[in-house]
Write a protein that binds this DNA or RNA. Structure first.
Lengths: 131, 131
DNA sequence: ATAACACTTGAACAGTTGCTCAAGTGTTCC
DNA sequence: GGAACACTTGAGCAACTGTTCAAGTGTTAT
């Protein structure tokens, strides 16, 4: 066998020389913060729930069978990352998804998570409302 | 002021009755796992780097100025969530993004993170290679 | 076979996070 | 005004996470 000059990695080490830099420094950190906020089961559940429409904290707490404070704390994390909207309506404070980006992120992740099986071409059908 | 029956939250409490259930139980947990893996600056950097093409561990470690072991550990987390591909080529092991879903997720998050300013309609331009 | 290279892995320790509880804020109702 | 309602917030503690280090695995070169 002839002696080859290790074609494995070396030819591609352009990465080592061309220092990769993001256009907007800090964008990665912000994006990571967003993912971190979404990277928790209960919190992600909350987002999918809000994807169905606005809801107040009490309503959510009842639906999830959790303490009011717990839900509020979860919403705080999501709020700090700008993932949810918030508006007062009388006594209640209604929460919702901040924008379409958030809905898209959740959708894509669920798509990837469910990969291999089933048809999840339509977002709404990902959720089942059972009476 | 007339006495109204608190139009605030009650009318929408369909959420409290119609128990929300995901089609595929566990999909949310899996998706949360994916987000959790992406929810770390250094790890997300790694993904954007791999978005540029395959690379071996040594190459990445050099580019990031980190220890080989550190990079390997980060890759392990990403691998456990199925976010990266891995193949051996001679002495080296080349890592890459697992699929388009992952690239999309990273793109959407960066888009949301950079919201308000700039045009990031084109993904490749999000990254700048400076000599 | 032995040595060198390119990773991988488990353990340990520090830093971070999430839930609970108790106290505090802002509205609405009376 | 005061009471009740609907949250919010800070502190405390247990559980989890990331990095480092040291030892282990698999591949290539000699």
């Amino acid at each position: 066998m002839p002696k080859l000059i290790d074609p494995a990695c070396a030819p591609q080490d352009h990465l080592a020389r061309q220092r990769v830099a993001l256009v907007r420094p800090g964008a990665i950190e912000r994006a990571a913060g967003i993912f971190r906020a979404m990277g928790d089961g209960p919190r992600l559940r909350l987002l999918t729930l809000l994807g169905q429409g606005e809801a107040c904290v009490t309503e959510i707490a009842t639906a999830e069978g959790e303490d009011l404070s717990t839900i509020s704390q979860r919403l705080r994390v999501l709020r700090n990352e700008g993932l949810v909207s918030r508006r007062r309506n009388g006594k209640h404070i209604l929460y919702g998804l901040a924008d379409q980006h958030v809905a898209d992120l959740v959708f894509n992740a669920l798509a990837h998570a469910s990969e291999g099986r089933a048809d999840l071409s339509r977002f709404p059908t990902l959720i089942t409302n059972k009476e």
